[in-house]
Design a protein around this nucleic acid. Structure first.
Lengths: 169, 169
DNA sequence: TTAGATACGTCAATATGGCTGCCCCATCTT
DNA sequence: AAGATGGGGCAGCCATATTGACGTATCTAA
């Protein structure tokens, strides 16, 4: 563990001595924050007969058009089978379409259809409303800290993937 | 990250001006951060043949001994049925015990057994390791911001419950 | 004291979203 | 030509959640 000084300066000694209370607080806020945020879109999904798994796929396809199946598998960290069902549903509802890869014809490039774009945007709006109000209430400095801590939770081997995601918007 | 100008101009910020990128970044970091943190304890749980649902119950009972069933239901926001199965499992494994309420004999007060305390502490240790290193890497100021944003994600009607949880440690 | 509300338990049926193991084909690489 | 890789699919299983209805014990208030 690095950089104990910044921590010891404030409330506690060193990370090793991090008080249980502070860790529990983080665990709980993450639990409530995450679950409440995801609940914000359940109704929108249910209207289309979809669940959260569908949204996760939809979201990352929206974020990175022409994503391949294997890239999406890495992001979601689920099995091919699980993703398969989800993508089948999304294709049947004409929210997602695939085309054969150009550089490698084995690959399938995933994209949202026009309707998929519309739907994802609608769901995203609910997320934006929740997150934006939390950001606004906390202030920009807090938002930066929020990002920083969360980045620290991502294991090194996954970090590149997350950074890459956030590069192109 | 990109130009905060629109946002920093609005530390008091009108959510309407929040850029999509900043919201997507939050959504993604929350997703990866939360899922990676919870994965940290999957192995420990699997050794006992338990899942994440069991851990959530275990965790909140550890946090608030003599919690009643209905209080726990409120916290977890699942149905009585779902919780029932989880608690049955935990009782069978002698990790949780109940006693009849003193002020209200209809209530069941939930507590960890000695073994339950030991087990929860072991799982908590994995969480602490992850979170503590993220805290240390980010610094105390960031941690405060992290908490602040997450608090903003909790709807008003749930906030009292969360605050109450965090009062007594 | 009795009627109704509350706390908890439990039934049956159902949905969702994960998993494993195994096998297939098409395509790329060497 | 051989093997690795990207993708698809089958069968079966498991964990976790849901709804709605109903039962019992206990508390509270008219």
């Amino acid at each position: 563990m690095a950089a104990p000084s910044s921590v010891s300066a404030a409330t506690t000694a060193s990370p090793l001595f991090l008080r249980e209370h502070e860790v529990r607080r983080g665990v709980e806020l993450l639990f409530f924050g995450y679950t409440r945020l995801t609940r914000a879109i359940d109704d929108g999904l249910a209207e289309h007969g979809l669940g959260r798994a569908h949204h996760r796929a939809l979201y990352f396809i929206a974020r990175q058009p022409d994503l391949t199946i294997s890239e999406l598998l890495k992001i979601l960290a689920i099995t091919k089978q699980s993703l398969g069902r989800v993508l089948t549903d999304l294709a049947e509802k004409a929210l997602v379409e695939t085309r054969t890869g150009v550089v490698d014809r084995r690959q399938k490039l995933l994209r949202l259809t026009a309707e998929g774009v519309r739907f994802e945007a609608q769901l995203f709006d609910a997320l934006r409303t929740s997150l934006a109000s939390a950001y606004a209430a906390a202030g920009q400095e807090s938002v930066t800290g929020f990002w920083r801590v969360l980045e620290g939770l991502i294991p090194a081997e996954d970090k590149a993937m997350v950074i890459a995601l956030q590069k192109d918007i």
